[in-house]
Amino acid sequence: MVFLFYTAVGLLAATLGSLVGLGGGVIIVPALVYLGPVLIGKEISVATAVGTSLAVLIFTALSSTLTFLKQKRVDFKSGWLYFITCGPGAMLGSYLTQFVNAKSFQLSFGIFMLFMASLLILRDYIKPLDIDWRIKRSFTDAQGTTHSYGYGIVSALVIGLAVGIVSGLFGIGGGSLFVPAMVIIFRYPPHIATATSMFVIFLSSIMGSFTHLSLGEVDFWMVLGLAPSALVGGWLGAKIASKLSTKKLMWVLRITFFLVAIKMIWEGITAA
Rank of each mutant, 00 (worst) to 15 (best):
L161P: 01
V29M: 06
I153W: 10
L96K: 08
G21I: 08
I265R: 00
I206D: 09
E267Q: 13
L119Q: 07
A14Q: 02
V232W: 04
F76A: 14
A102H: 07
I84D: 08
T196A: 11
R123Y: 02
G110Q: 07
L231G: 09
G23C: 09
F199L: 11
G25D: 03
M198V: 10
A31L: 11
I58E: 03
Y149S: 05
S242R: 05
R137L: 15
G87A: 15
A162V: 15
V74D: 01
G173K: 03
Y188G: 04
L62A: 13
A195L: 06
D132R: 14
G216M: 08
F112W: 00
V252K: 05
A156E: 10
L114A: 15
G144W: 09
V29N: 01
V26T: 09
I206A: 11
L231E: 09
D130L: 11
T140L: 10
W266N: 10
G41R: 07
T67C: 12
Y151V: 06
L114R: 07
S63L: 01
F170N: 02
Q143V: 13
I185D: 04
C86T: 15
L81P: 06
F258R: 04
R73L: 15
T246N: 11
R254W: 12
D132C: 13
T246L: 12
T60E: 01
I185R: 02
S209F: 03
V100W: 00
V183T: 08
L81Q: 08
F170G: 02
A49Q: 01
R187T: 12
G144V: 12
A117D: 11
E267H: 08
D130K: 14
K42R: 15
A227C: 03
V218G: 10
L54C: 10
T52D: 04
V183E: 02
I159R: 00
L54K: 05
T65A: 12
L66C: 08
L114T: 13
V163H: 05
A49W: 00
A142I: 14
S108M: 14
L203H: 04
S242I: 04
T7G: 14
I201M: 06
A90W: 01
L129G: 06
S229D: 04
A195Q: 04
G171W: 00
F105G: 00
G87F: 14
M222S: 14
L57K: 02
G237Y: 00
G17R: 01
G89Y: 01
K42N: 15
D219P: 11
G171Y: 00
T97G: 08
Y151W: 13
A47D: 13
L259R: 11
P189A: 15
R187W: 05
L203M: 14
E43N: 12
T7L: 15
V158Y: 05
A193Q: 00
T67P: 07
S94V: 10
